[in-house]
Design a protein around this nucleic acid. Sequence first.
DNA 1: TCGGATAGGCGCCCA
DNA 2: TGGGCGCTTATCCGA
Lengths: 238, 238
Amino acid sequence: MNPAELSNALQNGKTVMIAANCNISYSGRAESFLPDGDRIIMIKADKTLLVHQPHGSTPVNYMKEGTRYDITTEANRTLLSCRNEKEYMNIALNRIHFFRAHELSDGQKLQITGSEREMSQMIYNDPDLIEKGFRPLSTEEHTKFGFIDVFGYDQNRTLVVVECKRYAADPKAVDQLKRYADKVKHDKGLSRIRGIIAAPRLTPSAEEMLQKLGYEFRRISPPKYLEKFDSKQRRLEL
Amino acid sequence: MNPAELSNALQNGKTVMIAANCNISYSGRAESFLPDGDRIIMIKADKTLLVHQPHGSTPVNYMKEGTRYDITTEANRTLLSCRNEKEYMNIALNRIHFFRAHELSDGQKLQITGSEREMSQMIYNDPDLIEKGFRPLSTEEHTKFGFIDVFGYDQNRTLVVVECKRYAADPKAVDQLKRYADKVKHDKGLSRIRGIIAAPRLTPSAEEMLQKLGYEFRRISPPKYLEKFDSKQRRLEL
DNA sequence: TCGGATAGGCGCCCA
DNA sequence: TGGGCGCTTATCCGA
């Protein structure tokens, strides 16, 4: 790889892949240094930079969209310096194992189901999931009381605040429920309000907190609309 | 690329890079589908899979370490099926733009400074950052409801719980402080306890919460030990 | 742009 | 292994 190759690729909006032995220093939101080793360096069409080690899901170093690159050559190595408004990074390339640039055409977005928001919708559409007689008022996350997943009245006209979690609800989820419930209770000047966590399960300390606060738990999982299709497909494959 | 090439590469612990036009279906913690488009597919030595679109920092699809792969060829496309204990993914490769596998040797870990933990240490070593007469007892004290960043006595022997944040402390940070402070207060049977947020700043609603609860704020930023060196370097470069 | 919250979060530490 | 939580979190969404 020569500097011009990389510059051209970036200029033309190509996505660049480099495998190289390198060390990396970063300064910005924190400070870091990564000693010599073999990594994959990816620079995308939008000028996002990712550095991946041969293990793990997360990049060991990265720079955000819109970063600018400058490449210089020394006697026995190549320096890639990267900067944006708030951060900079220097990558010293000792040896380049391979370099490749390709123009990628992709305007698609991931279609996904099973989110917390869909849980809220599901409960709104089938309030019996909470309890007989529950009447949801809204699933708007932005009510005038804040971001509340579902809130409504029970059959005794007591206000109910529901916080949904797609995974085991932990102490943070209980904190959140309490914060919303307290706010609604205070703003409306109520003497009593009910708080409910809707989740597949509670962690032990979340359960303890919930009990102490007098809140409740409903065992509910997020909907996965494609599940039937997928189980069928999986069955065929096995 | 033929199936054997990929199989061999994976078997030999190489890291694989593929650029291809593909569509992807996923089922596991959620369900998703990504229609045809050009992407980079990376399979690492530890069998982590990442799929990247030509923009953004995060992979559009991924599978964790230890995933197993199976590749089959059809008339005009190649199918890569990926599964682990809880999830599976099917990648239909319509056209492969390039394929490359390389053995990467990298045992290094990122050295990083400027973390929340270092903020705690800094305060522990220089308690005056909180206030004159503050005597820290511990950092990272583990309680059943979480661990407390810094914990100690003020000059009147009132217990103080400090929660550190690298960035603007938000309502969640105040929740967390309250949870810890309440726990300590209750467990020790105290009539009063002080809670302090140490952070560069507070968000508006965090400030409101803090005031209502009678807690305090100290404007403190995380230490960046390499900063002087780096500013000097930056100055030289500019 | 900022604030607030979710995420198929990930990765780390500790019981 | 599971709980609890920080993260150069990223990303979305609304004000």
